[in-house]
């Protein structure tokens, strides 16, 4: 319910070039940033473009820059991030802007493909099932990174992505690391060759902005460090 208070919201309008437009939105209890954006679109300006689907932190489509930091807007309460009674909402950084708050995620997912982030099955000969005990280090490494939903928050938070547009980024490298540790996968060491080098894991400075901002608390920096180790060992063995 509205409690009489209002929120001053600055919302990015336009594409790469544009401006912030100010809106006044009623404050409500347990209001999320996505609630605020939706309220603006439904009551003040129907031309406002943004993206969301599940509203409960499962789909990864509503990430935006809220007061300078990349966040899921659906799981970000206004009370937690509003500075006084003001809020600034912009599209995710490091991605082309389609319009207003909607970014083009294609470069982000293209890099997942470049990092060979898809499972590669073994040949189709009949064989026994792989037994993967939960306590093995490989399985634990997969567990640590597998919950990524591809929202792009880490990619927007990463300084290396900003400096080096070829850099694969934390999410794609984290995905590759889960597959490197998947004993059923037959895509290595081709995958290691795809993720190593100046535009891959070796470009990471371990600043941990990805870990700091990840809404799932995934430590992509640790995954990237794992890739660096695996690539170094493969290079020493002449397998890269």
């Amino acid at each position: 319910m509205p409690d009489g208070r209002t929120l001053e919201v600055k919302v990015w309008r336009g594409r790469e070039s544009g401006r912030f437009q100010a809106f006044t939105v009623p404050r409500r209890a347990s209001q999320t940033v996505l609630d605020v954006v939706s309220w603006i679109q439904r009551h003040l300006d129907t031309t406002l473009s943004y993206r969301f689907a599940c509203r409960v932190g499962m789909c990864g489509s509503c990430a935006m820059t809220v007061n300078g930091k990349p966040r899921w807007t659906c799981r970000t309460h206004v009370d937690k991030v509003a500075e006084g009674d003001t809020l600034t909402v912009a599209p995710l950084a490091n991605l082309p802007v389609v319009k207003d708050l909607a970014t083009d995620m294609a470069p982000f997912f293209d890099k997942w493909a470049k990092a060979q982030g898809r499972f590669v099955p073994e040949d189709d000969r009949p064989r026994e099932f792989h037994i993967v005990p939960p306590e093995t280090s490989e399985r634990r490494a997969v567990d640590a990174g597998i919950e990524c939903i591809g929202c792009g928050v880490c990619y927007a938070a990463c300084d290396i992505v900003r400096w080096n547009r070829d850099y694969l980024g934390p999410a794609a490298l984290n995905r590759a690391w889960t597959l490197v540790n998947d004993v059923r996968d037959a895509g290595n060491p081709t995958r290691l060759a795809a993720v190593a080098g100046d535009a891959g894991c070796h470009a990471c400075h371990s600043q941990e902005n990805c870990r700091e901002h990840c809404p799932k608390q995934i430590n992509a920096t640790a995954s990237i460090a794992g890739l660096k180790r695996a690539a170094a060992i493969a290079a020493l063995k002449g397998q890269l």
Partner: peptide, 15 residues
Amino acid sequence: MSVRSETRLWLAQRA
């Protein structure tokens, strides 16, 4: 420069 060379450069720098 090949990925192998880049990885070896990284290793040499760490060592």
